[in-house]
């Protein structure tokens, strides 16, 4: 990277100071949440609020994970994990297969299906939430993982991404595979799928976070606290009426809710960026 910045004068340091201040401002609320999760309830409610971590870290996190308020946070984390993984993997599976069909096969109604998929782009969850609820309730899928996952699996965006990628794969590759004796699904498994792995990784990161951050849909269909996901669960922890909020436990839950997406992003960072920047051809 040397050479990118030629002048190393005052401007160089000023930009860094500016950036550091920006990061501190953005990071400050998260820091406060972390501090709040390590102190006792009275310390939070009596101003001024402490700015340095206290000694209640293990107590607060243990009580959050094991008992929580409505449901143990460990249980909510597991629910969120199942939902996010289900949505991410389901979306990838369905969209890569539909992109494969649309790009490599000539079948009647191919254009119609393509446009139908395109149309669903205009229908985010929030717009179709009432009819979707009807359907899910009709199938008896309220308070279940399948109810949390299936309605969110269809993805026009991911289908488009794979379609664009498949269209850059030279036709000769499919023809060479055909001459080598590979039938279509064999070509898909042996050649197309391995070639798409960076795209799959990038999509997985995006879709995992999309699934993890779902709020409205789980709020609507999970009435049983044992099925709560963590993102909506935080809101459920807020007291109604005159009850006293257990802020240290709520803050500990917030911090815990951030951990899995961060792990996914950091561990898949390399693949993720490669998948967005270049495709291996």
């Amino acid at each position: 990277m040397s050479g990118m910045v030629e002048k190393r004068g005052a401007g160089y340091w000023l930009t860094h100071v500016g950036l550091i201040i920006g990061v501190l401002i953005i990071f400050f609320p998260i820091w406060l949440a972390f501090v709040a999760s390590t102190v006792t309830q009275p310390e939070i409610v009596h101003p001024p609020m402490p700015l340095w971590p206290g000694d209640q870290f293990f107590n607060n996190y243990r009580s959050a994970l094991v008992s929580g308020i409505n449901a143990p946070v460990a249980r909510m984390l597991a629910n969120s994990m199942v939902m996010a993984l289900g949505i991410a993997l389901g979306k990838i599976l369905i969209s890569i297969l539909s992109a494969f069909a649309i790009v490599y096969f000539r079948f009647p109604g191919r254009k119609v299906f393509f446009w139908l998929i395109f149309l669903t782009l205009m229908l985010p969850v929030e717009v179709r939430i009432v009819p979707t609820y009807e359907v899910v309730a009709g199938f008896g899928m309220l308070n279940s993982y399948s109810g949390l996952i299936f309605p969110l699996i269809a993805s026009a965006t991911a289908t488009f991404l794979f379609r664009q990628f498949f269209m850059t794969v030279p036709d000769e590759l499919a023809e060479a595979a055909r001459v080598d004796g590979a039938r279509p699904m064999r070509f898909f498994w042996d050649i197309l799928l391995p070639m798409s792995r960076t795209n799959i990784a990038a999509l997985f990161v995006i879709l995992f976070i999309y699934g993890w951050n779902q709020y409205l849909w789980p709020l609507l269909i999970t009435t049983d606290p044992d099925m709560n996901t963590i993102v909506m669960g935080i809101k459920q922890m807020f007291p109604s009426g005159d009850d006293i909020a257990d802020w240290p436990v709520i803050m500990a839950t917030s911090i815990l809710a951030m951990v899995p997406p961060i792990i996914v992003v950091i561990s898949m960072q390399k693949l993720f960026i490669r998948g967005l920047v270049d495709s291996e051809k």
Partner: peptide, 14 residues
Amino acid sequence: NIAMVFQNYALYPH
């Protein structure tokens, strides 16, 4: 029972 050599070689990149 034919084999073909393509202009851009069409090797499987992975």
